[in-house]
Simulated assay, not measured.
Amino acid sequence: MSSVWQYLTLGLDREIFGIDIESVHEILDYRAPAALPHAPPFLVGMIDVRGQSYPVIDLRTKLGLPAIPVTPATRIILLNIPLRDRALRVGFVADRVIEVTELDRAEMESAPEVGGRWRSNYIAGIGRKGDAFVVVFNLEALMAGDDPALLEPPLAA
Results as ranks from 00 to 15, higher is better:
residue 104 D to H: 01
residue 154 P to S: 15
residue 100 V to T: 14
residue 109 E to T: 08
residue 12 L to R: 05
residue 33 P to A: 15
residue 139 L to C: 05
residue 157 A to M: 02
residue 57 I to D: 04
residue 35 A to T: 08
residue 66 P to D: 11
residue 116 G to E: 02
residue 54 Y to C: 10
residue 104 D to P: 01
residue 65 L to K: 08
residue 4 V to M: 08
residue 104 D to W: 02
residue 150 L to K: 01
residue 73 A to H: 12
residue 137 F to L: 01
residue 84 R to D: 09
residue 102 E to A: 09
residue 157 A to D: 06
residue 58 D to S: 11
residue 130 G to M: 05
residue 54 Y to F: 15
residue 33 P to R: 15
residue 145 G to Q: 07
residue 135 V to W: 09
residue 47 I to G: 07
residue 7 Y to V: 03
residue 120 S to Q: 06
residue 18 G to H: 10
residue 142 L to S: 03
residue 137 F to T: 02
residue 93 V to P: 07
residue 157 A to P: 12
residue 131 D to L: 12
residue 111 A to Y: 01
residue 29 D to Y: 03
residue 110 S to K: 13
residue 51 G to P: 14
residue 96 R to W: 00
residue 145 G to D: 15
residue 64 G to L: 11
residue 26 E to K: 04
residue 141 A to H: 08
residue 100 V to L: 06
residue 58 D to F: 09
residue 154 P to M: 13
residue 41 P to W: 05
residue 79 L to M: 09
residue 40 P to A: 08
residue 14 R to C: 09
residue 26 E to P: 00
residue 2 S to R: 04
residue 3 S to Y: 03
residue 77 I to N: 08
residue 55 P to V: 02
residue 123 I to K: 01
residue 14 R to D: 14
residue 136 V to N: 05
residue 94 A to L: 13
residue 14 R to W: 09
residue 8 L to S: 03
residue 74 T to G: 07
residue 81 I to K: 10
residue 7 Y to D: 02
residue 28 L to D: 04
residue 135 V to H: 12
residue 23 S to A: 13
residue 39 A to I: 02
residue 14 R to F: 14
residue 66 P to G: 14
residue 74 T to R: 07
residue 42 F to I: 04
residue 88 L to R: 10
residue 99 E to L: 03
residue 120 S to G: 04
residue 56 V to T: 13
residue 122 Y to L: 09
residue 55 P to G: 02
residue 5 W to E: 09
residue 70 V to A: 11
residue 154 P to T: 12
residue 157 A to Q: 07
residue 53 S to A: 15
residue 147 D to A: 11
residue 96 R to Q: 06
residue 144 A to F: 00
residue 117 R to A: 04
residue 26 E to F: 03
residue 146 D to H: 04
residue 39 A to F: 13
residue 145 G to F: 02
residue 29 D to H: 04
residue 46 M to V: 12
residue 48 D to A: 14
residue 122 Y to P: 00
residue 6 Q to S: 12
residue 156 A to R: 12
residue 3 S to W: 05
residue 45 G to T: 04
residue 48 D to S: 06
residue 37 P to F: 11
residue 63 L to V: 13
residue 70 V to Y: 07
residue 143 M to E: 03
residue 16 I to G: 11
